[in-house]
Design a protein around this nucleic acid. Structure first.
Lengths: 202, 202
DNA sequence: TGATACATGTAAGGGGTTACATGATTTC
DNA sequence: GAAATCATGTAACCCCTTACATGTATCA
């Protein structure tokens, strides 16, 4: 899929791998990110397949750069992908939920501590969605440039991030409350080992 | 991470790779899934590291099976992982958002069609969270077994799934409305090519 | 008669991360 | 004098997916 992120950006204008990395960092990173090492390899791959071409540029006082340009084949492949609807939901993975699922043996205090850390992390992320992520998009939306239309869609992706984090914070608040109310206190005497797991037949 | 899903389940009781696959399918699949091929290889790896041991069981009228049991080292590693808080948010990837971000050239109708398909898919998923996923958890919660406590945490993971999908549906409804209201209609004459992309300097 | 459940695995390949290597220029 | 920016890449490794291979028993 990184392939299409790169073609998507190169469809606006030619640029280098380094440029693409910086652009991804400032725009799609909250739902699609990539390391430079992967970007360079993917560009090489795209060139081998004829979706982009590159030319080497010598610069004074700066390192040489390799500028990539999308080809007609690349544009056709991108447009084809963009027009193909996703007809299945993609599998979702979340380490926090995996940890919580099996967390009973670690006891109430450890569970609550971890949930509170997550709450703080999500609160910070919500803040960046509302400020740092929103700012350049709002500027583009009001610019009167033809990109104002693109920025309508960019803002939609930003709002999904915002909604998701808001849901996560509500969930964390509620889960913290439930664990406080319904999970038995850790046994300070340490009599019965708190790490024991009962057998079960699922 | 699959490693810890497997250790987590084996910490309840010994079982085969096939059993683990079925169990994952019925419980953690909405936030952590795995193919059998990956499960078998991971179990082999865990045994090589001493976190599980296996014994071969010959069965009449059924294929032979290999039953895996967690070791003390495995239990220690699992507990250590469970006790270690996640202090960073994990990167998030979403193909739908990537597609929407670059979707301007495909035009209003194609964008709306794709958002409506997603709305329906999410509506269906919300339904399974509220019925199929909820049912066995509720049964365990009211069972009076020691697993009722574990089921409190299982239900928390289920609710996060429910909240997330609810947020996605609200977002889809809102985004469909905004695109309907603010995105210009496709040009039926086909005069100006609707796939053009303006240059920009981000 | 055909599908489903049980049961285990290998091989090839895709996608991604981390660490390493290099080096000039500008800004604080 | 130190850190950030510009700029490109390789090598090793991990995780995961898809496709392939095999075979019996039960149920509809």
């Amino acid at each position: 899929m990184l392939k299409y992120a790169l073609l998507g950006f190169l469809n606006y204008q030619p640029m280098t791998g380094y440029d693409l990395g910086a652009l991804i960092e400032r725009s799609t990173a909250h739902f699609w990110h990539a390391r430079l090492s992967q970007i360079y390899r993917t560009l090489k791959h795209l060139e081998a397949e004829g979706y982009v071409v590159s030319h080497h540029e010598v610069q004074a006082a700066r390192p040489d750069r390799r500028v990539y340009t999308i080809t007609e084949a690349g544009r056709a492949d991108l447009l084809n992908w963009l027009r193909t609807p996703l007809v299945e939901l993609e599998p979702f993975k979340d380490t926090l939920l995996l940890k919580l699922f099996f967390a009973r043996p670690v006891g109430k205090d450890a569970i609550l501590a971890q949930l509170r850390i997550q709450r703080e992390l999500h609160r910070q992320l919500l803040n960046t969605y509302r400020t740092d992520v929103a700012e350049p998009i709002n500027q583009m939306r009001q610019s009167g440039s033809p990109l104002a239309l693109d920025a309508l869609l960019w803002d939609a992706t930003r709002r999904m991030g915002e909604y998701y984090v808001e849901a996560a914070i509500r969930w964390l608040d509620e889960t913290i409350q439930r664990v406080e109310a319904e999970f038995p206190d850790d046994d300070p005497a340490g009599g019965g080992s708190p790490g024991d797991t009962p057998p079960f037949t699922p």
